[in-house]
Each structure stands twice: as structure tokens, then as C-alpha cells.
């Protein structure tokens, strides 16, 4: 018996300024699955993640995406987030003047409200945020600072994981969350992800390094090249790629 897919991407074509970047992507993610996407620089991995999250720089030319059975493109980016799509950015932006705590609270409030959960009062929220910080080995001072302001590369990535932990998404898109993390931080971040794994929640993990996949063990590995998925396989594909590079596929 087949489950209803959480995410169903069909023949997705997207362009920017008339230049085709995603050139017919099809991908099905079932609840509970972890998919890794690898591929050369500029192949369209971040574009795919951003199109799914709703960034409007990209024009969707054709194809469809269904998320929990509904047309994802009908939803505004904030509605997608509330429905459970989460993008951990490859390059998180800095927002001086808005404290991380304010930002997280506004975000969690919006998402909880949509899900019919009651709003957390400030003290309970702060307690929760501090607990997650501790798990991710982020100092609580990070909550007081401007969003990502002056954070190191690795701190920004951990801040993304912190947000994911607070928002409890059903589909997390992790765009090179491992890049810029030291070995310990990588392990901490991976533990953060693994702690969230459950039979309903799915992950799409974009990475250049098979090392991450030792910690976050994927069900499927896809190779994206030239805006297309050119090869899919199991976990062993990542090892093969590490050994041989991408040229043998293309």
C-alpha cells in the first residue's frame, strides 16, 4: 500500500531573467523520508529549495508541486512556512536591530496560531528557546543579538537549526547546513536534525559532503546537474560520488 506523498514535484521548470535553471525536476518525498541532494556548484540545488519555499525571484514556467496534497504555488511563502515547509538557508541574512528573540517569537507565534495552538507567553517561549540553544551549544546571548548580526558562518547555520527545532516543520529543506561547520558543530547540528526525525517528518538535505550523511543517514541520494536530477540511488551513491566525482554521471 502506498502512502500519500508529503511532497510531489513533477517536471518542474523554473527560470530567472529568461535563463532556465531548473529544467524538469521530478521528485517524490514520502513522510518520514530523508533525501539528500548533491551536485556541482551552480546546478540548481539552492534554486530548487528556494522555489519550494516561495522566493519570487524565480519564475515557475511549468510543472507542479503538491505539498500535503495541495498546490504549493497557491500559497504565499509565509503560508507555506505555516503549513510546515522550512528552509534552512545556505546564506542566512543578517537583520540588525531586530533581536533574534523577537524574530523567533514572531515566527513561532505566527506558526502556532495557524496550527491552532495557543500562543506561548514570553517567559515560556524564552525558556523553550534557551533549552534549544543549550542543545545546539549556542550561548543564550545569541537570543539577544540582532538576527544573525555578526554571527560567524557556523553560528548562522546553528541558528537555522534552532529555528527549525522551534518551528517543528513537516518538511525541512537544509541547504548546505553543514558548510562552514566545524566537526563538533556538524555533529551537534546533525543531532539536532536526528532528534526531529519521526515517521511524519521529512528532510531534503543539500550537501557537498558525504560526511554529513554519516550522521544524517539518507533514504535516497539524488544528483542534480544542469537543473535536472541525473541520477538517484541509495546511500551508497554518495560514497561513489565522493570517490569518483560527478563526471562519470554526466
Amino acid at each position: 500500500m502506498s502512502k500519500t506523498p508529503l511532497l510531489e514535484v513533477k517536471d518542474l521548470v523554473a527560470e530567472v531573467d529568461g535563463k532556465t535553471i531548473l529544467n524538469g525536476i521530478s521528485l517524490t518525498v514520502n513522510p518520514g523520508e530523508v533525501h539528500a541532494i548533491m551536485g556541482p556548484n551552480g546546478s540548481g540545488k539552492s534554486t530548487l529549495a528556494n522555489v519550494l519555499a516561495g522566493r519570487d525571484d524565480y519564475e515557475v514556467v511549468s510543472g507542479s508541486v503538491r505539498f500535503k496534497g495541495q498546490d504549493l504555488f497557491e500559497l504565499e511563502p509565509e503560508e507555506r512556512a505555516r503549513e510546515g515547509v522550512f528552509l534552512a538557508f545556505q546564506y542566512p541574512v543578517e537583520i540588525p536591530g531586530v533581536s533574534n528573540m523577537q524574530f523567533l517569537k514572531a515566527s513561532v507565534d505566527a506558526v502556532r496560531k495557524h496550527r491552532g495552538q495557543e500562543e506561548l507567553d514570553a517567559p515560556s517561549f524564552m525558556k523553550l528557546a534557551r533549552e534549544h540553544c543549550k542543545e545546539l551549544k549556542l550561548k543564550p546571548e545569541f537570543l539577544k543579538r540582532g538576527v544573525n548580526e555578526g554571527f560567524s558562518g557556523g553560528e548562522k547555520k546553528r541558528n537555522e537549526i534552532l529555528q527549525m527545532a522551534l518551528l517543528e516543520p513537516s518538511l525541512a529543506l537544509l541547504d548546505e547546513t553543514d558548510s562552514g561547520l566545524d566537526i563538533d558543530a556538524l555533529q551537534v547540528a546533525a543531532e539536532g536534525v536526528n532528534a526531529l526525525r519521526n515517521p511524519e517528518r521529512s528532510f531534503i538535505v543539500v550537501t557537498h559532503y558525504q560526511r554529513l550523511l554519516n550522521y544524517i543517514v539518507p533514504d535516497y541520494v539524488h544528483v542534480l546537474a544542469g537543473g535536472k536530477i541525473v541520477k538517484s540511488g541509495g546511500r551508497e551513491l554518495a560514497l561513489e560520488l565522493e570517490e569518483k566525482g560527478y563526471s562519470w554521471i554526466q
Partner: peptide, 21 residues
């Protein structure tokens, strides 16, 4: 977009960015 991707509606995002500035 960063705000929106975290579930915060556009108008609130704008207000928060203005205040942040």
C-alpha cells in the same frame, strides 16, 4: 523573504524591518 519563510506575514515583516532599522 527571510521573515516570510518563517511564517511571518509580509506586513509584519515590513514593520519589523522598519523598526529594526
Amino acid at each position: 523573504f527571510y521573515f516570510q519563510s518563517r511564517g511571518i506575514d509580509r506586513a509584519t515583516a515590513e514593520a519589523m524591518l522598519c523598526l529594526g532599522f
